[in-house]
Simulated assay, not measured.
Amino acid sequence: MRPTPAARCGTAAATAALLAFTALPVYWMVTSAFDPRAGARGAAPLPSGFTLDHFRYVLAEGGFGRFLLNSALVGTGTVVLAGALALLAAVAVARFAFRLRTTVLVMVLVVQMVPLEALVIPLFVQMRNLDLLNSLLGLTVVYLAFSLPFSIWMLRGFVAAVPREVEEAAYLDGCSWSRMFRSVLLPLVAPGLVATSVFSFIVAWNEFVFAFTFLQDEGKFTAAVGLHRFFGQHTNDWGAVMAGSTLITLPVLVFFVLVQHRLATGLATGAVKG
């Protein structure tokens, strides 16, 4: 049954309203970043002019380039380590039979249910005892722990969807397990790796609470913590805040554009075969 014109118009209006509601904060952020009078803009829908002074300030005087580099290092480390460890763990729980395998999978889900805020103090004490406070490596380890449960659970579905006969055929052709893993299994689960990598990157790039708690040296601040420096006790530099927010958003957008095709394929495959 074809929808009526009224139904189509209602759907179009609802879609347009949803897009406007979603895009308005982004529009306000970007236009305020280029507005020379961002702090006094008020509710004006259009900026008062165009300037790059806010970006020059946050990158030069604010040291935001260093903060972006720190976030990139932490994000890259989290993505690489989470992808490698989650894939090996997913192969173990999907292919190997061992005692308490179901218990391990249930524990992976239980970890996802714990509120992150409840872990701030225990992780702070643990990082202090391991001498990893005020360290980008320690922050990467924390983000890795947050990313692994979701990554393992999702990649398990991709590994389980690969027929065992494909692996057995590789063995019959003379492949070792490492060669089979590299040449057969890894390409087949690559879409799942992309999907989990996006999740891991977003966790590491946008997280604020743990980075703000664990890092004391200003030279090691991530971008989310560095943005907080532009908020004052009595006043806020809205031009710098919006410019910094725009700079934080750009790498995520670029990352999504580069992997969007594989991300969509990975999510669809995981939904059907997981």
Rank of each mutant, 00 (worst) to 15 (best):
T102E: 12
V209R: 06
L116N: 05
F255P: 01
A13S: 09
S32Y: 09
L109A: 14
R41I: 01
S135N: 04
A72K: 08
L19C: 06
F64V: 05
M107H: 07
F230G: 01
T102V: 01
Y171R: 14
F98E: 00
A271R: 09
A160I: 04
S245C: 10
F256L: 13
G49V: 12
L172C: 06
G39E: 13
E218Q: 12
A44C: 06
W205N: 06
P191M: 14
W177V: 10
P5S: 03
A17T: 06
A7E: 14
L130P: 04
P47I: 03
V74P: 00
G274P: 02
L148V: 03
D237L: 09
A204R: 15
A6Q: 09
L87M: 07
V254T: 11
S48T: 15
A6W: 09
E207P: 03
L250F: 12
D217H: 02
V106N: 11
G192K: 04
V252L: 13
E165P: 11
A23R: 04
V252P: 04
G83C: 14
P115W: 13
R56G: 12
F67W: 14
A6E: 08
P47Y: 04
L52A: 15
T4N: 05
L68K: 08
R164T: 14
V257K: 00
L46G: 00
V108H: 12
M107L: 15
L85H: 02
V26P: 05
R8K: 15
A33N: 07
A223T: 02
P45Q: 07
G239D: 02
V106K: 00
V141A: 14
H228T: 05
F50V: 08
R156D: 15
V80H: 04
V259T: 12
L81Y: 06
R99P: 08
A161S: 15
V259L: 10
A38I: 05
I152R: 02
A60H: 13
L215F: 06
K220P: 09
A84L: 15
L100Y: 11
R37G: 12
L19I: 11
S176R: 01
R41W: 02
N70R: 07
A161P: 10
G266I: 02
P36E: 02
A82P: 00
M107G: 13
V225T: 03
V159A: 07
V114L: 03
V272S: 05
L148W: 12
R101A: 00
V166W: 14
M180A: 03
A92R: 01
M107P: 00
V198N: 06
L250A: 14
A195L: 11
Q112S: 08
F214L: 15
L116R: 01
K220Q: 09
K273N: 07
N206K: 10
A20S: 04
L116F: 14
M29I: 13
L139F: 03
L267Y: 01
V104I: 10
S183E: 12
F255Q: 01
F158V: 04
L188D: 09
G65Y: 11
P251S: 07
L136K: 12
S147L: 03
L247E: 04
L68C: 03
A224Q: 05
